[in-house]
Design a protein around this nucleic acid. Structure first.
Lengths: 244, 244, 244, 244
DNA sequence: GATGAATGAGGGTTCATTCAT
DNA sequence: TATGAATGAACCCTCATTCAT
């Protein structure tokens, strides 16, 4: 649940002892200060990118001294990596929850698609992604880890979701893995590349996203939906009409 | 039609005369030297990204002196832009030709999808795209121009292509613009983001691409195809079977 | 009254507290280091002029690192300006005091003229003036400020002095402003331009200055003196003779 | 009379032979091209100062190639020196002619003073002088030579002029050399230093110069004039009145 | 002889990192 | 331990000079 940087766990024991003994966290172990640094780093890195961000900027933004930063992070690169880890955690947090609710398939997928598209294409998240991508040539593992623990994890949940729907007889899919990617990319149709290349200066509007996602869900269900799906949906329609 | 770098056209006349007269190109006009610089710049920029690349690196890699680079390009940014223009030209050259041939719809789209996916996900092109994206925070117009004259231009051709198919009664599409993006993104389902974040260290295999594109075309035609399409295709099937 | 460099006043409070608290001056606030830099800059700028002086030279001469200089001064130009301010302060300090003493007119003017000529034509001051003049095409306000707070301020005191003498009935002057300039330039007759163009390699001797100043005072008083002046002076002569 | 650079004379013979033999001046001997270069150099050096002027600027301004300049002048410094020599010639040319005319003393001195002040304080001449002075720390002989062949030469003429007046019984002067400097500096009272330090952004007006020079001549004649002078002048006054 | 493209040392400035306090 | 002043390598870029053409 907690997103911690590598190595943080091992230290917990010695750290705790230390804190008890002297009432102060050991060097580089105060999580409050760590967060403070990362928070400052976020603002600076996201705004300026890795290279253009200066440690002085971060120092100022974080309100800690240069030396302190270097106690917590070996160098600029490591600080950046730690930030990206955190950022990833923040971005993808709660994004896939909607898939856990037992709900009408189309509705669920639509809801999810909208949340996904909205998040991914938001200015803040785009900047973060660009920063990671821009650094990926020099630090490929960073990009890989970002994807693995972010989009990939979400993708896995989507696969699970689709399998459940298949089990319920609502979908018929040969290659579920591929289908999951297809759905995601349909929800982002055109948007991702337009945004990531800054061809779109601003994030898409809610209306545009709604339109794209509705169409994406349509296509997906037309391609993979079964008759049961139609039946279930007509049920729902009836239910809805009854309500109205 | 011809992808030329800025200013290349203006030179031809005066330049040619000059060269004939004195056997040496004017300052900043020698296309060989220009290529040499761009080639060096390509290696360095692609490997390190815009910021991390140093003009000294490029100097070394290109085998020309610092001053010479500055005769050909006003500054680092302009050199980078020129490189990106070139890259874009190279990447998207000939990519959309297959759409111009009058051919069976499914077959054409499949062929096109494969070419597209193969190109876009190739290691070289991925590196270039990452470089552009990484610089897009700093130079958004550069990213925008890259997209506009690259992917966007291809997208426009795809729109034209789809409209033609609609006219022929093979497709029924409400939002052609969206549909074109959907098709492209289906052909790249999962691939683009996996590659751009360096989650995939290597470009996808031909088989994988074939699989993804076939599925993408299927979905697209299932969603937007008409009965005429089925008819036409059955015609084709018959023809193929006859051949076999 | 005190000639302080810009910002020096604001620092005193916070700075002092800071120094007491932690024993080290804040960034860019250590007056010793500042002097050290200015001292190095003086040697280099004075010897080579603004343009020909390189920050590397100054670094070497001052014995501090490049970065440190840029903590104390935003750029080369600001360092130069600070130096010139200092120089001006040093040069014109105490130069005009003699005018404040109530004394015999001729004697006072003679004393003052000698001090003035000696100072202005000294090698050090000449070098500084040449440096300012050489930079004045590039930074005219710098030259203007130098003149305004240096020679001009002295000129104003001289005007005051002359007005007092007029009040005492010792002088009769139409254009006091002009007269003040005339007096100064008579005291420097020939010297200033000879020195500033380096026609004279060395500063004039005390004897030469005495001769020039005596002649200058003579001329000035012959031109602007009243009969009261003669009377007063004869009084003084008598007094002197009585002493002898 | 002819202002030639050092060494130019020695070459005249070989040069002439060469010209006759081949119809073209030897390398670095074409006086037209030389002037052309100097003319371009003048514009650039005077405007920008020695350091800020680039050989490319001069190349452009002079309309000759870089290589050609280096045939005529060994390096930037030598070109600059040659220019200053020329400039000096131009500035002081005809400045002292008025002293050669046999005329009323006061009138002659007034005329001369006005010409002198006007020339010396003109923007163009000020720039040139600043350039020389600014370079004088690095090339003291340049400044010395400038003064010697410019202001000093004029000073010598003024000494001759004063001696003639003394001979005619119009002046009584102990130290003629000093007196000559005094007169010049009285005519420039306040102006030279105000201008050279760029305290005055613009050259003084004709009215201001007239006022200063009139006052300067007054003082000078009050200090050094004889009774014969008064007599001669009253003669003139009478003559003038008679005319009126 | 004239040209101007090419050179590369050196310009001012920045900033990741260190270490005395 | 925490600080931030100091460091100096490395940044992008300019330009006096050379030399192949």
């Amino acid at each position: 649940m907690a997103e911690t940087t590598s190595g943080a766990d091992n230290e917990s024991c010695a750290d705790l002892l230390d804190t008890l003994r002297r009432g102060r966290p050991a060097a580089g172990q105060d999580p409050v200060k760590r967060s403070q640094i990362i928070e400052g780093a976020r603002r600076v890195f996201i705004e300026k990118g890795f290279e253009a961000a200066s440690m002085n900027d971060i120092t100022r933004e974080a309100g800690v001294s240069k030396g302190t930063i270097y106690v917590y992070f070996a160098n600029k690169e490591e600080l950046f990596e730690a930030l990206i880890e955190e950022e990833r955690g923040t971005i993808f947090k709660n994004m896939y929850e909607v898939l856990d609710r037992a709900d009408d398939l189309r509705q669920t997928m639509t809801k999810f698609g909208k949340v996904l598209a909205l998040k991914i294409t938001s200015t803040k998240v785009m900047q973060a992604q660009r920063t990671v991508i821009g650094a990926a040539d020099r630090m490929p593992e960073l990009g890989a880890r970002f994807f693995e623990r972010g989009p990939k994890r979400g993708h896995d949940r989507m696969v699970t979701f689709l399998n459940a729907a298949i089990e319920r007889g609502l979908l018929r899919i040969d290659d579920v893995d591929l289908a999951a990617y297809q759905f995601t990319d349909l929800c982002l149709a055109g948007l991702f590349r337009q945004c990531i290349f800054a061809y779109r200066a601003k994030a898409p509007s809610q209306e545009e996203i709604d339109h794209i996602v509705r169409s994406g869900v349509d296509i997906f269900l037309k391609a993979y939906g079964t008759e049961s799906l139609a039946a279930e949906e007509s049920h729902q329609m009836i239910a809805l009409e009854a309500k109205a």
